[in-house]
Design a protein around this nucleic acid. Structure first.
Length: 570
DNA sequence: GCCGTTTTCGGCCCGACTGTTTTCAGTCG
């Protein structure tokens, strides 16, 4: 549990210090420590071995505080801080245009401690009398609160990607080729995004930003300056446009792609070389070092090019220094698709239609994995249905020698960890995906045992959506993913990267570890209709984010190779 | 609060926009 609670507490301390008005670098030190520790799974071992200080960014005070918390369950410094400032003020930090200084003023002057009180104070018109506040800020805050209530400010990548691309397309009609790009977290393929960042290169700023604000997607213009324009789209998300000169475009592209942490590291490297890096260029004194592309900028900093998906300051800079950036998997590498539902269970389309669609996409095989018998809510297949489905598949495979349909099932993992059918049925499948679909709320130990047991089953080829999470609506079951990955390595079980934009599960943050352990990943659309097959695209983005190469992904292999692997396992 | 093949003290990334000011602080990315 410490691996979750410690970063959370350090993060809270960082925010409380900001609100309190302490040295900003002090709060930054806490944020940084929280980030470093959230990337470390075995925090408890590190604490016990007194090895915390080996982590960059953790010094004497932080290690002492963390050890104290680990031993006593409390951190005196944190408890005292909470006596000074109500911890509920932290929730105000989520409101747009409201930062630590204004929150402090609201607390000191009006005694406001939480969102509810703030909303009330706005409606009572009490903010406008405060120094540094006015009517416009009060209105903005009120609007921000309403927005936060509705969306929590977060959107699924899959819900906004196409909209962002649409806006990009509308610019392509009016700017030279290559002078418009979607940047930010969308370009980095984050599973959840907060806004859409569009970058345009050109000289006529006014025309470009007017073109933007008159697009049909725009509901409201939030701010409009010479180089920066922000709008709220009809879908609720905010879209920011930045306009820079053509010469500055590659620098701005890098800058607006982020992440913030990645950029800070790059600027630090520039500074060490005596240069200055910003969105307009790389400068020696005031002289621009002319560079034409992101690749040239990285190279100038003596780094290998870093693909956008990796730019999270999670080891990519060190890898680029040593020329160790992997050749990431691409959509074109995918040769077949596994985990598809048909009208035998809760899917919409027939096997034949799905196979045709997959072949049309240029793929050479498809794995049919309907729900198993105990998934009654999803019309899971009874034994007779399984036989009937096998006959259909055999017949279709006879008919089309250029495309292969694999027999599979998404077997429920029972609460006791067993699979859903008897052995004589199980052995008839080409491969088996084992997934949890019931009793989500088992305790961590029980759930882990349940899944580990299913993974020990010799018929389990693959673990489906390992945490069961639904992004922005349901947390995954409590698991130590490293244990699951270790078990997968021991038993040669493949782990699914469920490509549904609602799931994207296994989380990309664990993929690097899986790769280190030699665990194979299968990018599966979990499609319930032909249209769903294309969701493999979202899985590719996440796989790339998790440093996956072609060889790390099962379904970059041919049908024959995959079949051979499945047979060998049996 | 952390860190150091320039430093154990003095740094810690950098710029745009807004609103409230009367020259700039606060927020954001």
């Amino acid at each position: 549990m410490l691996n979750k609670s410690i970063p959370a507490i350090l993060e809270e301390i960082g925010m409380l210090l900001e609100i309190k008005g302490e040295n900003p670098f002090k709060s930054k030190a806490y944020y940084n420590a929280a980030k470093m520790l959230s990337g470390i799974e075995n925090i408890e071992e590190m604490i016990k071995a007194k090895r915390l200080r080996e982590i960059k960014g953790i010094g004497e005070t932080l290690s002492k505080n963390i050890e104290e918390y680990s031993e006593t369950g409390e951190m005196e410094y944190y408890e005292n801080l909470k006596k000074d400032i109500p911890v509920t003020l932290i929730e105000l930090m989520q409101i747009p245009n409201l930062g630590p200084r204004k929150i402090k003023a609201l607390y000191d002057e009006l005694g406001i401690t939480n969102v509810g009180e703030l909303e009330y104070a706005c409606k009572e018109n009490r903010l406008i009398t405060l120094f540094g506040f006015g009517e416009k800020i009060q209105a903005k805050i009120l609007k921000g609160i309403e927005f936060l209530k509705k969306h929590k400010g977060e959107f699924l990548f899959g819900d906004v990607y196409l909209e962002a691309e649409k806006i990009k397309e509308r610019f392509e009609d009016v700017v030279p080729p290559g002078m418009v790009e979607v940047c930010g977290s969308i370009r980095r393929r984050k599973e959840i995004v907060k806004d859409i960042d569009i970058l345009v290169g050109g000289d006529d700023h006014e025309t470009i930003s007017s073109h933007f604000t008159s697009m049909p997607e725009i509901e409201e213009v939030l701010l409009k300056g010479d180089t920066k324009t922000s709008c709220r789209l009809r879908s609720g998300i905010e879209a920011d446009l930045r306009v820079v000169s053509k010469e500055a475009f590659p620098f701005a592209l890098m800058y607006f792609t982020g992440s913030k942490e990645h950029n800070i590291r790059l600027r630090g490297i520039s500074k060490k070389k005596g240069w200055k890096l910003n969105e307009y260029g790389l400068f020696e004194e005031d002289r621009l070092i002319k560079l034409q592309s992101e690749k040239e900028i990285y190279n100038a900093l003596e780094l290998a090019f870093i693909p956008p998906e990796l730019r999270e300051d999670m080891g990519e800079i060190e890898a680029a220094e040593h020329g160790m950036i992997p050749e990431l998997v691409r959509l074109e590498d995918i040769k077949g698709i596994l985990h598809v539902h048909t009208d035998f269970s809760d899917g919409i389309d027939t096997i034949e239609k799905l196979a045709d669609a997959a072949q049309h996409m240029g793929l050479s095989y498809i794995g049919i994995s309907d729900h198993s018998r105990s998934a009654y809510y999803a019309r899971g297949l009874k034994e007779d249905d399984v036989f009937r489905q096998w006959e259909t598949i055999d017949r279709l495979n006879e008919k089309n020698r250029f495309f292969h349909i694999l027999k599979s099932i998404e077997s429920d993992i029972q609460p006791d960890g067993s699979l859903d059918y008897d052995e004589d049925i199980l052995k008839g499948f080409d491969f088996i995906i084992a997934s949890v679909h019931s009793n989500f709320h088992m305790k961590k130990d029980g759930m882990e045992k349940r899944i580990l047991k299913a993974m020990e089953n010799p018929y389990t080829t693959m673990l489906g959506h390992p945490t069961g999470r639904l992004l922005l609506s349901r947390d995954g079951y409590e698991l130590d993913m490293r244990n699951i990955i270790d078990e997968a390595a021991r038993n040669s079980v493949i782990i699914e990267l469920n490509a549904s934009p609602y799931r994207l599960d296994i989380d990309w943050r664990y993929l690097k570890y899986a790769k280190e352990k030699g665990v194979l990943i299968s990018i599966n659309p979990d499609a319930h209709a032909t249209g769903g097959l294309y969701e493999i695209f979202y899985g590719i983005g996440i796989a790339r984010k998790g440093w996956q190469e072609k060889k790390d992904i099962l379904n970059t292999r041919t049908a024959a190779e995959v079949m051979k692997m499945f047979k060998k396992r049996k």
